[in-house]
Design a protein around this nucleic acid. Structure first.
Length: 353
DNA sequence: GACGCGTGGCA
DNA sequence: TTGCCAAGCGT
């Protein structure tokens, strides 16, 4: 289910478009509907702020005022005009696409969605932006602003970090877009997202469509949109030291009382990047003041947490001598260990004993 | 579907 | 300081 809320769509369209016509910023690419200029501006605006783009756009148009001029330009000169703007493949792809338009479409930007989509650097958003802004076609142009604004207006609680969520919002836009003025409607959504319905602290009291906004009405506008953070699935590699003395007892350590697996017990662990494997024996002798008699590999254990992965190289270490037991550790028989709470990964080690 | 791609502004 | 973001796209 996309959403369950309902709004007065014609009134929403009118309020949004009226606000956009009155409050829109005067930007160089809004001087006319030239598809080439719209196209260049949309490419430059990808992941880039308006204020950053303005001087680049003006300079670019002076150097390459027409689609044909850009197609015939020296690539190095194009890149020079892009210098500092970032994402340089945008510039190369744009010139590739412009050459394609010259060759295939008589130097006229196509207004066919499929033909546009085949152009290098023109994805779903840019395609919709060109179709609606340059050609007045009622096509969705869903960017981050649109997802944020509509997730609030309709209280759509989907994760906008997921790629496929864009399609959900394209479908939503098809439901609510103004067929009469899709250009102002699409731009109005984006302009509203940039000026009013901002990611942090949206200016709801000034919002021209406040009365349509379900999130505002429900008091949840601050917690939308839902955007789950990408968590690096980092890999943490350890040596696990199953230290057994000549009486058959094992060493267990308690984890810190904050953080991952707080206060649980485990066989002593050392990060693999903190001690070289060939120095493990010396490490054990030094740390526990014992003589290492034998060291044998047990089966390694892999454990996946929600946000990280442990890879545990397990060493069974037989020692001799009176062991120095640090404060956060215990010296326990195999039977006594059963009384202690272990993480699953260390239960899997215990099973090997 | 996840990742790399640039840069500048902001808290 | 460090993360997070800002009109995405290609691979």
């Amino acid at each position: 289910m996309k959403y369950t809320s309902t709004i007065n769509i014609p009134q929403f369209q009118e309020d949004l478009i009226t606000w956009f016509e009155k409050e829109q910023r005067q930007l160089p690419w809004r001087e006319n509907q030239d598809p080439y200029r719209v196209w260049v501006s949309e490419i430059m605006l990808q992941q880039t702020k308006v204020d950053t783009v303005i001087p680049y756009f003006q300079n670019f148009m002076e150097h390459f005022p027409t689609l044909t001029a850009l197609a015939e330009a020296n690539e190095q000169k194009v890149l020079k005009a892009w210098e500092g703007l970032g994402y340089y493949s945008r510039a190369r792809n744009l010139q590739t696409a412009v050459k394609e338009v010259v060759a295939q479409y008589d130097a006229k930007v196509p207004n066919d969605p499929k033909q546009l989509a085949d152009l290098k650097g023109v994805g779903p958003y840019t395609k919709g932006a060109i179709l609606s802004i340059a050609f007045d076609k009622a096509e969705p142009a869903v960017d981050g602003n649109v997802m944020r604004v509509l997730s609030r207006i309709l209280r759509i609680e989907e994760d906008i970090a997921k790629a496929k969520t864009r399609k959900t919002f394209e479908s939503v836009v098809r439901d609510v877009i103004s067929e009469e003025n899709p250009s102002a409607f699409n731009q109005g959504l984006m302009e509203l997202g940039a000026l009013v319905c901002t990611p942090k602290k949206p200016s709801c009291l000034l919002c021209p469509v406040q009365e349509h906004c379900v999130a505002f009405s429900d008091g949840v506008e601050q917690s939308l949109p839902i955007k789950k953070k990408k968590i690096k699935q980092s890999l943490h590699t350890y040596f696990v030291l199953v230290v057994q003395d000549d009486a058959g007892n094992y060493l267990l350590e308690q984890r810190p009382d904050q953080g991952l697996l707080a206060q649980l017990w485990q066989f002593p662990m050392v990060k693999a990047d903190e001690v070289d494997e060939k120095h493990l024996s010396a490490y054990v002798q030094e740390k526990f003041d014992v003589n290492v008699v034998e060291m044998k590999d047990l089966e390694p254990v892999k454990h996946v947490f929600s946000h990280l992965t442990w890879f545990l190289n397990v060493k069974h270490v037989t020692v001799k001598g009176d062991m120095t037991v640090p404060g956060h550790m215990e010296h326990l028989s195999k039977e006594e260990i059963k009384q202690y709470p272990l993480p699953v990964s260390h239960q899997n080690i215990y099973k090997q004993l």
